[in-house]
Amino acid sequence: MSDHSATQSHGLVHRDDEGSKLGMWLFIFTEILLFGALFIVYSVYRFKNQDAFHAAALNLDTVIGTVNTVILIVSSATIAMSISALQQKNKKLAITLMVITLVLAFSFLVNKYFEWGAKFHHGLYPGAEHLMSLGHGQNQFFFLYFFMTGLHAFHVIVGMGFIIFVMRQVMRDELTYNNYTRLENAGLYWHLVDLIWIYLFPLFYLIH
């Protein structure tokens, strides 16, 4: 979201790395509040339907969840390393690390696809007869599961777009060892995506 738009707009030399980062941080605050509202909804319904949430959570595949958690944490590390690589003028390594991040992000989505597919297969989707028969609590669990992990997956896709966008600029030498704030911002955004998952994972998969 935040970038050095001011540079282009007036044809003046106006570059404010601190300002760009501040903008990104503020945007991250709004993202946290966005998910924060959902965490409130989750807490309220978990409190109201403790047994049902417990039973519903048993349907989730902890293995895929764990694999995806590891994938995201590693991808957070690779994007951070690519910033360091660019700072050390190693453009090639920086790009390689961004590509690895993208591959990891994509594999996260592939896992998600199979995971969701399995839920649909078992009739555990909103509106399905089987899920309806399980009662309100389990319904709420799966509404939240699909909505929150879906919104998170959407953020993964946006984050990938952001990384592709800065990767192109690194390739064209528009971002370099002394002008890398936009890559840093992409990294910050990616860490946010990772961080949200770090909370979603235990809430849905681990707490039984």
């Binding site: 309220v44 309100h136 319904n139 509404f143």
Partner: peptide, 17 residues
């Protein structure tokens, strides 16, 4: 759109929330 029921009492949702 997707027949969820976060706030619909028919699905155990909470309108006060």
């Amino acid at each position: 759109v997707f027949q969820l029921g976060f706030f619909d009492p028919a699905f155990g949702g909470d309108p006060i929330l």
